[in-house]
Every structure is written in structure tokens, then in C-alpha cells.
Computed example of a mutant assay.
Amino acid sequence: MHWDDLRIFLAVAREGSISGGANRLKVQHSTVSRRVKSLQAQLGTTLFERKKSGFELTQAGEELRDSAQRIEREVIGLEGALSNQDNFAGGELTVTAINNMASTILLPVFARFSMEQPETRLHIHVSNKYVSLAERQADVAIRLTNTPPETLVGTRLTTVTSAVYGSCNYLRSLAKGSKPRWLGIECCEYHRSWTSEACPDHDHNFYIDDTLLTLAALKQDLGLAYLPCFMGDGEESLQRYRPPDAAHDLGLWLLYHADLKQNKRVQLFRAHMIREIGNLRALFEGEQSVIP
């Protein structure tokens, strides 16, 4: 029995589908399907039952999952111990970051790290969903939170403020007495709850599940929405409808597993991010005087 087969089996068990497992591992759907069938044939038993809700483990599948998870912990522990002794800049470094930052304000920061450390092969993984550092889905995570997991090593890089924005045209219509219209925001729990508080009647006729789409919708005069100040303040066509509220401040954290505390690539990246984000602090904290 090969570890790669067990790794694929665990991914399908955790995601509840072949496609989910393939996405989790970033491999082809056909590869995952073939390897699962091969593993079942090798063991002479059925590991999954297909149901409307997805793939469910059989009793044999549950037993294999428990054993595979124990093996996984051993493999990850060994990899972590070896990675912690890695004192070379050369090699792979996978960083996960949320989309609205990775594609805007952080991209030049990542690019400068890549130019400064050409021996490091930097992989940027964009995801607004939970990414397991313990399972080595990424080496470093850049996340917005005020409660970072205690199981990870963390560095708070800065505070990210948010405000309510609308287009200049739309805000002029409000000045004439129009009723405020709020976009239905579903990109994250933070913006969803803030919008629900600001618009308790939930009278939305336009819903969006991505912050970059929120920005685009505001520029189309579709209403009001919360945006991080580093996105909203830089847009000439937008203005603040409400100023930042300290209750909505979020910490921007750089997180990694304790096994990587001494890893050279992780420490080089950490030092780079602390320096670069320090230079961008005013943008993240919503000090409008720094915006041209």
C-alpha cells in the first residue's frame, strides 16, 4: 500500500467527493477516481458509498481513514522535522492568501520577494476558504482574523480597517434624498454580518460573493457596501459613505506551523513581509491622507 494512495483516499473522505478530493490535492479528477478504484480493488472491499449528499465512508472506509490519519500524522511530523532543519533559501514555498489582497496590494510585495530570493520557488495559492497548514496544504497563510489559531505560530503584520463606500454618482443621489440601497454581500462572515447590521431588513436585489466583484459593483452605481480601506480609498470613482469603525478592525496575520519555525525560506519570507507591510501600514489602516 502506497502513501500516495492513502493521501488521495483521505482527501476524498474529507471532501465527500472525487472532484472535491481532486481540487484539494490539485490533481486531475480522473487520477483520483482511478487511484480510489485501484485501492478498493487492492484491498478487496468497498470504501465509499455514493449517496445524494456525496461519498460516505463504509465501515471498512472508516477503519482505513483512522489508520491513514495516524500514518499522515507520522509523515507530516517527519516532513516538519526535516523542514525545520532546512537552512537553504532554495526550494518550494507555498503561500496562501485571500483573493482581494493577493491580486492587488500584495502582488507587488510577493514579486519583490521573488526577485530578492530567486532560488526560492514561490507558489501563491489564492483561497478564501480554510487551508490546513497542519496537512501541509500551504507553508504560510496570510489571513484576516482577530483570533488566530493557538496551534500556529503567528505574526500580526498590521490592522486592516474597513468603511462603507459608494460611487460618487450614487452618493450624490443619496444627497438628494434617495433611500440607501445596500448590496447583499456574501464574500465572508465579516462583511455578511456587518451588512446585516447596517441593513436589518435585508432588502437586497443584488448579491455578490467576492470582494473584487463588490468593488466592481460599487463602481456601477449599484449601492453601498463595506470594503477594506486599502481597496476603496484608492478608487477615484468611490467615496466613503461612513468612516471606519474600530469595531470592524481586523488583524492581518502571517501564520505557519511550529515545525517550520527554523525553516530558512519561511523566515526569509516572514522578514520580508514584516518590512513590506510596515511600509504599507497607512494604506491598510485607512489613513486617507496617503491616497493621492
Rank of each mutant, 00 (worst) to 15 (best):
K37N: 15
S83E: 14
L268A: 09
A97L: 12
N205I: 03
D4N: 06
V27I: 15
R270E: 10
S289F: 12
H2S: 10
P148N: 05
T45Q: 12
Q262E: 05
R73H: 08
V126R: 01
S53Q: 13
A141I: 07
H257P: 00
R14A: 11
K37E: 11
A225D: 05
F55I: 03
G54E: 06
Q28R: 13
D4W: 07
Q288F: 05
R121N: 10
H204D: 07
L222D: 00
D4A: 14
L6W: 02
F48M: 04
A175F: 02
A22H: 05
I185K: 14
G177S: 08
A246N: 14
L133G: 09
G223I: 00
E189D: 12
G232L: 04
L268N: 05
L212R: 09
A246M: 10
S196I: 06
F55C: 07
Q28D: 15
T45M: 13
A163S: 14
G234R: 05
D245N: 14
Q137P: 11
E49N: 09
A282Q: 11
E49Y: 05
G54F: 12
E276L: 03
Y170C: 04
L152V: 02
D201V: 06
L64W: 00
M273Q: 09
I8P: 00
A102S: 15
L224I: 08
G16D: 10
C187I: 07
N263P: 10
G184A: 04
N128V: 07
V160G: 01
R275S: 06
D5E: 03
R242Y: 04
P243K: 03
T151P: 07
H2Y: 04
T31M: 12
L222N: 06
T158I: 01
P180R: 04
T94L: 09
F55V: 02
G80Y: 08
S127D: 10
R7Y: 02
V290I: 14
V12A: 06
G234K: 10
P200Y: 04
C187T: 05
P180I: 00
D245A: 08
D139Q: 08
S132T: 01
R7K: 15
H272F: 05
